[in-house]
Structure formats: structure tokens, C-alpha cells
């Protein structure tokens, strides 16, 4: 899954009927393992009701479609969790900050 921060929202009068009016959030990835395209942010369906500025965990692929009920939705990313806190073990990786670029650190990150 992807750790990201909600930076915005998008809505549209004309959209695919299979989206059935679901809220779409713009999420800027903080830790995205294998981005298949150089995207600054993802557009995710939000079954949990996250707000702008919160850190979230995004799940990609089939489960994102099933989060809307069945697999027949034009969707590829859904929000799986709204993050309360991120804890990074200092000694686990020699340079933990190496994986969180300066401007992409999760808000509620504590080092232990």
C-alpha cells in the first residue's frame, strides 16, 4: 500500500455513471513503492471520509474496486486507512530519512 497525504478533492457533474457520485480525493504519495508513472498525486475513491491534510494509506488494484461493492467500477485506488500516527525506528534502517524525502515526511511521524 501507499502512504500519502490528502491534498485536495475533485468532483464533476459529468462523470462515469459507474463512479456513482463517489468522492474522489487527491493524494500525494509520501512512500510509494513502485510508481508505474511519474505522478505527483493519485486520485483515490474514499469510502472512509478522509479530509484534506490527513495522512492516509491507499490500496491499489482490484480491492479498490471491491471497496465500492463489486469489481465493475472504473477505479484503481481506494483509501484503506486514515493514519493517526507513523512511527519510524531509528536504527532499523541506517538512513530512515533517506526514504522520506524532506518535503514528503508524514505529519505525525515520531522516531523511536
Amino acid at each position: 500500500m501507499i502512504l500519502g497525504r490528502v491534498i485536495g478533492q475533485c468532483w464533476a457533474a459529468r462523470q462515469s455513471p459507474r463512479l456513482d457520485g463517489n468522492k474522489l480525493l487527491l493524494v500525494r504519495p509520501l512512500a510509494w513503492y513502485d510508481p508505474d508513472h511519474q505522478a505527483d498525486h493519485l486520485v483515490c475513491v474514499d469510502p472512509l471520509g478522509a479530509e484534506v491534510g490527513q495522512d492516509v494509506v491507499v490500496c491499489m488494484g482490484l480491492p479498490a474496486r471491491l471497496a465500492l461493492g463489486d469489481a465493475r467500477h472504473p477505479v484503481e485506488a481506494a483509501i484503506a486507512a486514515i493514519v493517526d500516527g507513523v512511527e519510524v525506528y531509528q536504527d532499523a534502517c541506517r538512513e530512515p530519512a533517506f526514504c522520506f524525502a524532506h518535503d514528503r515526511q508524514p505529519e505525525s511521524m515520531q522516531e523511536r
Binding site: A31, A81, I82, Y89, C93
Partner: peptide, 27 residues
Amino acid sequence: GRVLGEVWATRKAPRLAGKKMLLVAET
């Protein structure tokens, strides 16, 4: 990879309740 940390969240998708989410740094 190596476990780098942990992410905890109270509001999660239904089937994720009670499951731990780890931050893993690929090595």
C-alpha cells in the same frame, strides 16, 4: 526489506480492523 516502522490508524476499512500495518524499506 527491513521493517522501518509502523503505521497505526483507528479509522480503517472494515476487514483491516486489528491488523498491524508496517513500513518496510526495501533493501
